[in-house]
Simulated scan of single mutants.
Amino acid sequence: MRSSAKFSAAAVAAALALTTLTACGGDSDSGGDGKVKIMVGGLDKVIYMPAMLTQRLGYFKSEGLKVQLLTEPAGVQATTSLIAGDVQGVVGFYDHTLDLQVKGKQVESVVQLAQAPGEVEVVSNKAAGEMKSPKDFKGKKLGVTGLGSSTDFLTKYLAVDGGVKTSEFTPVAVGAGQTFISALKQGSIQGGMTTDPTVAQIVEQKIGKVLIDMRTPEGSKQALGGLYPSSSLYMNTDWVNGHKETVQKLANAFVKTLKWMSTHSAEDIAAKMPSDYAQGGAKLYAEAIKSTLPMFTKDGVMPSDGPATVERVLKAFNPNLKNATVDLKKTYTTEFVEKAG
């Protein structure tokens, strides 16, 4: 996350413009009446599917919660909204909690939705001959959702791990979905990191190929050396401590969804989601869900070795974290998911 204070207002304004739901800013003390606003780093991304699915299954409502889901195309802007106090929670990548801690902000994952990034590094067909691994990132323009986002973090790690300095390639903020696909088609990027359903559409349209696949625990271990907890519900620690009953209800709802996902097919899940999420067609959308399903946890519990992997990955390229001491125990809690039925 970069200079959050500078673009906080702009990011929040963009977030509100991007969603069909209305919201009142600065409502950081919500929660006591069951009203909670959650910003999602891309509601239609399969990696963040549990947020909308929980609402569609009626699990928020059955817990007595009135949850308003807002959307932002990149996780870094979602984080800005949380720090500004305009939302009470974010469904985004866990790695932001470490990045924020060294900047003096105490944020924690309360439900760990995923144990692998769910991200894929794709390469355009045109550049596929010269880009066969991260060693070939040098001199390339690579798409990320936003600068300071988790796709940016992971791209930098893969580069450094492949012997390429972060100054030797250019990350380009191209969002996800159609904006990412357009950038790849036009050649303004040679490759980039994105998620399903964008990956499925790129492969289906034959405009690019999968270079590195981190949609499964195995893929995460191969690329990053371990499980990489990613999608999570994270919140300001002070807010969590002051609204434990509400947080418990949120955890109950999300854990029910994770259990439901683990016992239903990709087609069943696709049928519950808004129809406009299946931009490449229902069949392709179900395939995208199927490819990504292995990343999700079944119980919302943080994998025991996950936080250390995230810290190692971030320290490999992030100058803010390199020499900083991170208290990993303060970046997540299992208190609520362990009580969830």
Rank of each mutant, 00 (worst) to 15 (best):
A5T: 01
A5Q: 07
S8A: 13
A9I: 09
A11E: 06
V12D: 03
A13S: 04
A14V: 02
T19L: 07
L21I: 00
G25C: 15
G26E: 11
G32I: 10
K35Y: 14
M39I: 15
D44Q: 09
M49W: 09
Q55N: 11
G58H: 01
G64R: 03
L65T: 06
V67R: 02
Q68H: 09
V76Q: 14
I83F: 01
A84K: 08
V90C: 07
D95G: 09
H96K: 03
D99A: 15
Q101L: 03
E121C: 14
V122L: 06
A127G: 03
A128F: 00
E130T: 02
S133C: 02
P134D: 06
G139E: 07
K140W: 00
G146R: 01
G146N: 10
T155G: 14
T155H: 12
A159C: 02
F169D: 10
T170L: 15
P171S: 11
G175N: 10
F180W: 12
F180D: 09
I181D: 04
I181S: 08
Q186Y: 04
Q190R: 03
T195H: 02
D196Q: 13
Q201A: 14
G208E: 00
R215G: 12
R215Q: 15
G219D: 11
S220C: 10
K221Y: 10
L224W: 05
Y234G: 07
M235D: 06
V240A: 09
H243A: 10
Q248A: 13
F254P: 07
V255E: 07
K256Y: 11
K256D: 10
G281P: 10
G281V: 01
F296R: 05
D305I: 04
G306R: 02
P307W: 13
T309A: 08
R312I: 09
F317H: 12
T325G: 08
L328I: 08
T331Q: 06
T334I: 08
E335G: 05
V337F: 00
E338A: 05
